[in-house]
Design a protein around this nucleic acid. Structure first.
Length: 573
RNA sequence: GUCGCAAUAGCUCAGCUGGAUAGAGCAACGGUCUUCUAAACCGUAGGUCGAGAGUCCGAAUCUCUCUUGCGACACCA
């Protein structure tokens, strides 16, 4: 309620300009048409909002330039700084003092809640994300799913949704038969305790080496997995133990990233929940035999048949995902059901959605695959077996180490250096991942990841820290009483950037695109740094309160932008 | 082979539902710290927007064809 009321207080300048134009037209265009045609000029010299007169040329049978000039002469300019015709465009320059007063008041009143909306109306949104495999290391590939999912969850909250972050662990399947066999043959408890992931991987790799010459190992693994499925004590004990130590190891990395989960419903969780989905498919007559296997035909979706059960009756990935979808549907009544999974699975998710639609699952329509691009090294796909793997933990530590060096060089007196180094180093990695469009592929180059200058996370963090530094030096400030009508042209870009934030929040949510927030944060930081470099803020004059309000507003919005990306904003660095 | 995605400055990328001279960052070169943190700021240089047609008053943006790269194509996940 509070939020909605606040939002309305910020005047919609596009609507104001639309009205100004409509007032000098004779219904040649509708209000919506004018509103839609308004655009933001590229440079400040062309004003803040512009109306192209091309559309009127046909109706009025006059040259666009002439139309623009004629209209400007008639427009009431009192509420603008100025309105002028330039070529075929009518350029509106907003009243800076009024604009500044409104936006700064709004941000300072609302604080971190600025930009919050209630579009989601509290709807549940399960997010399938991160999803590493037990007993395997977390690589840069998992980073993407983890930080994209985490950021989308935060953006969803900002839009009034209730996300449920689900780490859909790869914790079941025949590979556990292999792992248990390998552990019994070559492993020992102490090693696994000391360094679980590396040793478990070592056993697993050794199994694959050995089974080339001893194919009987595969039979043994199959039997062992059968025992695990049947609940045999020893196998279940080992499985639980592997799962536990793996999770502990994963959680150290998640802690470093600052990512938490609401549920860890992995593949094992759904293992006993697959019958229902299969039964529904059978009941609806959707399941048909094809080459010995059970499939669902998807011709009407222009998709290949989805294979549901293997010819030996065994289940597949999709069988489990159907169970997952049913479970989520029932448990959460989801407003949306999200899967943050690599783009190589796009076709698969089309099939999954189609099957769920055929089944008549209520939330099927709102299933969204949120794909992201591949991480490669020298253009080649990562794979554990070929040794082309980049350990996320190592990359994070490298980044933290570099951040530490930077602090020693630039700000050696900084208190809590360790903590800040972690926030900056990790922030660089997360921001680096999120700043570009999700679906872009990334060829991994460590040096690129460890950049702290230019368009990076640390750049935004630094801008925020500078703002905080000024506020510290200013001492106690009465923001509520301060005049906020800042009319300094040098601050204009910063002010208009601040105004953009709520729209960015909505758009990033609609597109499931954290990069929109990251790019926005860069834009705002850049505008503020420019202002900072050219204007002295801490000067005793009648605009001091207004300037400090601007700095405060920038600090609030930069911090909140970083927060939405899952990046910390230290007050000093 | 079929389907999907991409191609913009030396490199990495922006460019919103088509609109005013195509923008950043990095790298290169040159400036700016006795004054709020130089992880910053300012400037110079760098482009037939993969190619070719079409639609339109107007195309990097929309349509088609081609080229190149990546991915997906049922008993893995």
């Amino acid at each position: 309620m509070y939020i909605c009321r606040r939002r309305k207080l910020v005047m919609d300048y596009k609507a104001q300009v639309t009205n100004s134009i409509l007032s000098v037209l004779n219904d040649e265009l509708s209000s919506a048409e004018v509103y839609e045609k308004l655009e933001q000029p590229k440079t400040q010299t062309m004003g803040d909002l512009a109306f192209p007169a091309f559309a009127l040329a046909k109706v009025l049978h006059k040259a666009p330039n002439q139309i623009a000039a004629d209209l400007v002469a008639k427009i009431d300019q009192t509420s603008y700084e100025k309105v002028e015709a330039k070529g075929a465009y009518i350029n509106f320059f907003l009243d800076k003092g009024q604009f500044s007063n409104e936006i700064l008041t709004d941000i300072i009143e609302q604080g971190a809640a600025y930009g919050q909306n209630d579009n989601g109306k509290g709807g549940n949104v399960p997010i399938d994300m991160s999803s590493p495999n037990i007993a395997k290391p977390i690589s840069m590939g998992h980073l993407r799913s983890t930080v994209i999912g985490n950021s989308i969850a935060k953006i969803l909250v900002k839009n009034g949704y209730h996300p449920i972050k689900d780490n859909h662990l790869g914790d079941w399947g025949t590979q556990f038969g292999k792992l248990i066999v390998a552990y019994k043959k070559w492993g020992n408890e102490d090693d696994v305790r000391k360094d679980p992931i590396n040793n478990l991987v070592k056993y697993y790799v050794k199994f694959h080496q050995e089974d080339k010459e001893h194919p009987e190992l595969d039979d043994e693994a199959r039997e062992t997995f059968k025992k695990l499925e049947d609940g045999n004590e020893e196998e279940v004990y080992l499985w639980k133990w592997f799962r536990k130590v793996s999770l502990e190891s994963f959680n150290k990395i998640y802690d470093k990233l600052g990512v938490t989960f609401d549920t860890y419903n992995g593949e094992a969780f759904y293992n006993d929940k697959m019958d229902e989905g299969i039964q529904i498919l059978k009941d609806k007559g959707l399941l048909v035999e094809s080459q010995g296997a059970q499939v669902v035909k998807l011709d009407k979706y222009n998709l290949n048949p989805a294979l549901i059960l293997k010819s030996d009756g065994a289940t597949l990935y999709i069988t489990r995902d159907i169970a997952t979808a049913i479970y989520r549907d029932r448990t959460y009544k989801p407003a949306m059901n999200l899967y943050v999974v690599g783009s190589e699975q796009t076709y698969y998710f089309q099939q999954l959605k189609a099957v769920l639609l055929e089944m008549g699952l209520p939330s099927a329509e709102n299933l969204h695959h949120i794909p992201f691009g591949l991480i490669t090294v020298n253009g080649k796909k990562l794979s554990t077996r070929s040794g082309r793997i980049i350990l996320l933990d190592q990359v994070l530590d490298d980044a933290i180490e570099l951040a530490k060096k930077q602090i020693e060089a630039k700000n050696p007196d900084l208190p809590n250096k360790e903590e800040v180094a972690k926030e900056v180093g990790v922030g660089a990695i997360i921001f680096g991942d999120l700043k570009n469009e999700r679906t872009n592929n990334i060829d991994f180059v460590l040096e690129d990841q460890l950049k702290f200058e230019g368009e990076t996370g640390p750049y935004v963090q630094y801008s925020h820290a500078r703002a905080e530094s000024i506020l510290r030096k200013a001492g106690t400030i009465d923001f509520h009483g301060a005049d906020k009508a800042l009319d300094d042209p040098a601050a204009w870009e910063t002010l208009t950037s601040l105004k953009e934030f709520p729209a960015i929040i909505e758009s990033a949510c609609k597109d499931f695109e954290p990069s929109e927030v990251a790019k926005y944060a860069l834009r705002l930081a850049k505008a503020f740094n420019k202002y900072y470099a050219h204007s002295k803020i801490l000067v005793e004059d009648d605009q001091l309160g207004a300037r400090l309000s601007l700095v405060k507003a920038v600090s609030i919005v930069l911090k909140e932008s970083l927060n939405l990306l899952g990046v910390k904003a230290p007050d000093a660095m």
